[in-house]
Design a binder for these strands. Structure first.
Lengths: 168, 168
DNA sequence: GTCTATACAGAGATAGAC
DNA sequence: GTCTATCTCTGTATAGAC
């Protein structure tokens, strides 16, 4: 990818991180680079291609953070921290259909690997734990829990259920 | 609500159920009723008001289905069945910010009540179980699990973790 | 690679006649 | 309560000059 293309993805990421997916428009993107929107099409075929690059970068970022966690509990903490620090990027990555045909192969799997490892390859447990974590995050981001809900406790309750199957 | 208003909400619900939230446009709504879009504004102040009515109706529908379930497992099955039968309505209700100021009071709580009852009022367990169920559904609807994933098993694994705390 | 000019689409909503 | 006509806005994307 050329220098210029990198800058475009940088700017696109920043726009989304700050204002959500809706804030990424070709006009806004051009403006941020002091360029007119049509010029962007010399570097990317369309908006989806730019978005896909942002997704790819975010997934790798998250994956590398997760790789540093050792236990399931630590993994959950890292995952949640990323989501709360970058709610819009989290959504971009994890909500709605994923444009897999525009992503380099392996990116998605790499992001999932730390969790699979943490549960010793038990895929049912990995999927259930992922669903729990994603559900907690998205419900929190969407403001669906009551303002006074103790979410730390809810996380603990859920994690206790998944983290230690030997005791069940 | 007048007869006509009911018809409008009916049509709006049908549009969303069939084509998702994006399919609800004032033009399409008018068309379905053999009416021009501007006429709708004699019955509702704007599109959000119509949408809120659809949400209200869907929440009551889901709540009454859930009320018939007795155990946590039965509740989960009912919840999932509704979501898979009406994925777009499920999304409308449960994804993104909820326009609470446009909903009649109590609707949201009524939908949550069956779950709270099923876990004996333990709110942490209720929230964790909700997050798990919502996560499983939304990841499934968004096509985030591999095509060959055995989701029934993942549900079982998750529910076993939440349904029987006495054994933990 | 960047520009200007522009096409094109589709959305929500309003004014005022009937 | 419904109509026609229309406004306004905001997107994506293309053509062609420089």
């Amino acid at each position: 990818m050329s220098e210029r293309s990198e800058q475009i993805v940088d700017a696109a990421r920043a726009l989304i991180d700050e204002g959500g997916s809706a804030a990424l428009t070709m006009r806004a993107l051009g403006e941020r680079l002091n360029i007119r929107a049509p010029s962007l099409y010399k570097h990317f075929p369309n908006k989806s291609a730019v978005e896909a690059q942002v997704i790819t970068r975010a997934m790798r970022e998250l994956a590398s953070a997760l790789a540093r966690a050792d236990s399931l509990v630590a993994l959950a903490a890292t995952y949640r921290a990323y989501a709360l620090a970058h709610p819009h990027l989290y959504r971009l990555m994890n909500c709605g259909p994923l444009p897999r045909h525009l992503l380099p192969p392996g990116v998605e799997d790499a992001a999932a690997l730390p969790l699979v490892r943490a549960v010793g390859g038990e895929m049912n447990r990995a999927r259930a734990a992922w669903a729990f974590a994603h559900g907690m995050i998205i419900l929190e981001l969407d403001g669906r829990f009551p303002p006074d809900a103790d979410l730390d406790s809810a996380w603990s309750t859920g994690l206790a259920a998944f983290a230690d199957p030997a005791r069940r």
